[in-house]
Design a protein around this nucleic acid. Structure first.
Lengths: 239, 239
DNA sequence: GAATAACAACCTGTCATACAGGTTTTCAGG
DNA sequence: CCTGAAAACCTGTATGACAGGTTGTTATTC
């Protein structure tokens, strides 16, 4: 047996990985911006001296991560920042039970305490209105849980957007998928109309604080909201 | 010009997307755990009634996101949670200038204020030791910036690990790539030995607070550390 | 001369086939 | 029971083919 455990050489990263790197490298070195076109598969095939199969798998992989956009007939283009890949990672973690819903909520709470404060400080009037509108729509569609949930999600994403930091938006949006799977449970735990309306009131309070531009108050309401949500999930027996 | 911006209909999700969904669906419905094997490409080909090309591109895409592990001769297996995809998304955002380094630091600060507090509360003795060790190694390799950086990164990742919430680990680790690209700039801004040693002292203070199990103190030191780091980057003209 | 329609060139999407190597299973021989 | 080699299966890569979408060019027509 050799004393080397594995570090001396990676036998071969594989041609596809190499191609992926070449493409991302191309984006970097050419300073491409979203919407800019990438080389065609044929061109990449010649440049890397590999088969089209390999190049295609590389393009397809980047497309799956939403780093590039592909469509038939057109060349691939650099993509705008998108949640796609991150959502899939989180979903994968949840479905394979490597992370728990509660852990996701802890992260969400941490992040949204910040986004809500930033939103209070940096929101435009339009953004404040959009946030308030989502809260209002929650109340209006009160009898339709599905709709309440979608407005709830939109509410949190709107706050993240108003933080004016796309990284926060990215992360918050990535968690929306998980929310869609657990939201109803929390809703049902709030058995009475009163409890459910109180939860909606919580959202309105947050929206008001953002409108008023009071980051402290906004964060307080957000914290309260999350604490109650987590409690609701725990009561329902979500690990 | 049509009034429709884009939503009317997705003409066809494409066979590959369908295949990707089928595979993730398989993982979900079969309740597969990390390490469990997936169907072979041939089996998937038959099941979905598409060519091997399509199935392969689907597998490869999931592999690129590190949701599955592939290697020659063996069937693909469900992967352990990994930062791969998330890192690439962040990197893509940075290189295409859709997000700024400063924005990443804001997110890091937000998250690590929490991880450090959780670490102080939940760390095992072993974890506390690992954190302290990284801080010590920073001081020991003081004359070798590259090494200091790697120990710095390991330090933050160790804290995230000690938070016992893999989602935090995931995010913190995803940012490490960005750190590797900007760390040296901050280091050089601390022109004197004194300033550099003070920065290392900051890390030791954090490690101490975690060892003592004092979440408040730990968070305070972490906040201070980030504020200084951001200041250093701003002084260096990083947008 | 300008609008337009047909066409050519190029590009991606999918399929079929082939073969080189790696991995697991099987099974014959000891 | 153990061993070792062949067989069966699997993934990695290459090649060629064709359908269908997109774009730029050219020829036709008004």
């Amino acid at each position: 047996m050799q004393e080397q455990t594995d570090p001396p050489d990676e036998p071969s990263p594989g041609l596809v990985s190499t191609a992926i790197q070449a493409i991302t490298q191309h984006i970097r070195s050419e300073g491409l911006a979203p919407g800019d076109p990438l080389p065609s598969e044929a061109a990449m095939t010649r440049q890397l001296n590999v088969s089209r199969t390999v190049v295609r798998e590389a393009f397809r992989s980047l497309s799956a991560m939403r780093l590039i956009d592909m469509s038939a007939g057109r060349r691939a283009t650099v993509a705008k920042l998108d949640t796609g890949a991150m959502s899939m990672v989180i979903e994968h973690g949840i479905t394979t039970q490597q992370i728990s819903v509660q852990q996701v909520y802890d992260v969400r709470r941490t992040i949204e305490m910040r986004t809500v404060a930033l939103a209070a400080l940096r929101r435009t009037d339009q953004e404040a209105a959009a946030i308030a509108r989502s809260a209002r729509q929650m109340r209006e569609s009160f009898r339709n849980p599905e709709a309440v949930m979608e407005h709830d999600i939109a509410f949190h994403e709107a706050i993240a957007a108003a933080s004016h930091n796309p990284v926060f938006s990215l992360i918050v949006t990535a968690f929306s998928g998980v929310t869609r799977r657990t939201w109803v449970i929390g809703w049902r735990t709030r058995s009475s109309d009163e409890a459910q309306l109180k939860m909606i009131k919580g959202h309105e309070d947050i929206a008001d604080a953002i409108l008023k531009g009071d980051p402290r108050l906004a964060a307080e309401h957000m914290a309260e909201h999350f604490d109650k949500s987590v409690k609701a999930l725990l009561d329902a027996g979500i690990a």
